[in-house]
Write a protein that binds this DNA or RNA. Sequence first.
DNA 1: TATAATTTTGTTATGATATAACAACTAAAA
DNA 2: TTTTAGTTGTTATATCATAACAAAATTATA
Lengths: 165, 165
Amino acid sequence: MKHEDSPHTHHNHNDCIDTALDTAEILCAQQGQRLTKVRRRALELIWESHRPLGAYQLLAKLAEEGFNSAPPTVYRALDFLLGAGLIHKVESMNAYLGCAHADKAHKGYFLICDECHNVMEFDYQDIHAALIEKATHQGFELRAETIELTGLCAKCKAKPAGASA
Amino acid sequence: MKHEDSPHTHHNHNDCIDTALDTAEILCAQQGQRLTKVRRRALELIWESHRPLGAYQLLAKLAEEGFNSAPPTVYRALDFLLGAGLIHKVESMNAYLGCAHADKAHKGYFLICDECHNVMEFDYQDIHAALIEKATHQGFELRAETIELTGLCAKCKAKPAGASA
DNA sequence: TATAATTTTGTTATGATATAACAACTAAAA
DNA sequence: TTTTAGTTGTTATATCATAACAAAATTATA
Ligand SMILES: [Zn+2]
Ligand SMILES: [Zn+2]
Ligand SMILES: [Zn+2]
Ligand SMILES: [Zn+2]
């Protein structure tokens, strides 16, 4: 699994979105889960943002489109999408990000730029294996991993401070 | 650096607290920082809890003792202590934990038990080195690391579910 | 198809975490 | 001693998340 493309990288993001939604439909169907209108649209809206989206930002967008605008609406959709592995939560940002590899079981490891707030998901089996070993060695049964690295992305390092992408 | 003792391990926790406060005094003095009454007491209260303490839990304790009871009081103290490296924030819990090794520069890596909510800090230079290398390889300048592993601690694995320590 | 069971959504209220802004005070420096 | 920088007090508000229960829609069963 390799998904380390920068959000800056030139690409047709509509393709990303389409692929993600197709994958979501398939995965939900396989698992007997219902990708309802609001869930589907929530996922799409998250994907339309390259950067992680906050729950209330998402709620505002949904409200604009006539969906119910109370918080439980968005948190239920987020819970569903998280449970289905279609999105990740970035704990240190309280924000949500579409996962491009929902069909492959994996942990969400992130590189988060302090300057432009773009987030890159990366995969690192060596890290995962080492963490498992470390935890097991201490008699700890590992269930979830939050790996969030913050700093300055390559683009922002090359730019004068403040000029975020 | 080795600080992998379980909070369950029998020990005189008053010694931990005393040591932590002594270290804090020394570090602050060295850096020309002022460990004021409220900051010192906040650190002490955090240390008195083996488990990470929420900001408002801490605020309540401070208020009981006659300190100002508005949120900025506690968040200012927390900011100070975080900045001085005397405590860590556990992002996935929104809670704060005393660091037993404030005198040694290090990243806070945690093992968090879903059952008893105890948190063990662990150190793993290999992981740190690997993450640095990974980030650098992508042109990313790494500044901070959030490594939070959740699951079931050894004690809780050995116990019937629900009987948290 | 009718009915029941299950899941999803609507709605209101509240809880939990964190910061902005500005005034008052205090300690340190000049 | 005046200035300066740092700290604390105070009020208000922003931001993130869940509880509880009613209504509607979907799915399963009779
Ligand atoms: Zn992913
Ligand atoms: Zn950047
Ligand atoms: Zn530490
Ligand atoms: Zn435990």
